[in-house]
Structures are given as structure tokens and as C-alpha cells.
């Protein structure tokens, strides 16, 4: 039985790289959506304060809420990252498993 470890490792790395780049657009798009929503929100907040629709106290309170919103968005990004990492790691394990099975079949 012979396993070419160099080839297997290179293939595992290629699979990891491919999986991450396949989903890179999702990370980028979501980050942009979060930023765009923040921009719209802050513009609305400033406009309402200017029009006297909200009190300075409520304005300050909503700015505090921005921290929680950021925390929520970072948690959502963490799920995307974890899902991509899981998919990439399992694809690499799959390559390793196939290499071992192929080597067994030659015995």
C-alpha cells in the first residue's frame, strides 16, 4: 500500500481553498448589506432628531442599540464563517479518506 502524502495534502489544501473562495462572495455581500442597513438607520435617526420626532434621550438610547445590533451582525457573520470552515474541513477529510481507500484497493 502506498499513499503519496504530498499529493494528498496538496489536494486537501486545494479543496479547502476552493470551498472558501466559492463562498467568499456570500461573506462580502452580507457585510455590505449590514453596512448599507447601518447607513440607512443612522440617516433616519439623524433626520428624526432634526425634525424633533424623537427626544435626545431616545436618540442616545438608539445609539446604544447600535452596539447590540453590531453584536447580532457579528454573530451572524460567525455562523457563515463556521459553516464555510465546516464544509472545507469535511471536504479535506473526504479527500484523505478517498486516498486511503484507493491505497487499500491496490493491496
Amino acid at each position: 500500500m502506498k499513499v503519496n502524502t504530498n499529493d494528498v495534502i496538496l489536494e486537501m489544501l486545494a479543496v479547502i481553498k476552493g470551498t472558501v473562495s466559492d463562498h467568499w462572495d456570500e461573506v462580502k455581500t452580507t457585510t455590505n448589506q449590514f453596512l448599507q442597513r447601518r447607513k440607512v438607520r443612522l440617516e433616519l435617526l439623524a433626520e428624526m432628531l432634526e425634525k424633533g420626532e424623537i427626544t435626545p434621550a431616545r436618540f442616545k438610547s438608539r445609539l446604544e442599540d447600535e452596539k447590540l445590533l453590531l453584536e447580532a451582525e457579528l454573530n451572524a457573520m460567525a455562523v457563515i464563517s463556521k459553516a464555510i470552515a465546516q464544509k472545507a474541513a469535511n471536504a479535506a477529510i473526504d479527500v484523505f479518506e478517498k486516498a486511503i481507500l484507493a491505497a487499500i484497493s491496490t493491496i
Binding site: 428624526m48 424623537i54 442599540d65 451582525e73 454573530n75 451572524a76 457563515i80 459553516a83
Partner: peptide, 29 residues
């Protein structure tokens, strides 16, 4: 006030958006 209703609605929708993203991300798998 009308203004605070609009602001609260926006904040709640943006929080729900983050939750939707976190669930949808699992479709990657």
C-alpha cells in the same frame, strides 16, 4: 411618535435580518 415608530421598526427589522442571515448561512452545508 411617528418618528420613533419608524426607528423602532427599522431596528427590529435589522435585528431579524441578522437572525435570517445566521439561519440561511447553514444552507452552505
Amino acid at each position: 411618535s411617528d418618528g420613533l415608530i419608524k426607528i423602532n421598526q427599522t431596528y427590529m427589522q435589522d435585528l431579524f435580518f441578522a437572525l435570517q442571515v445566521s439561519e440561511k448561512a447553514k444552507e452552505i452545508l
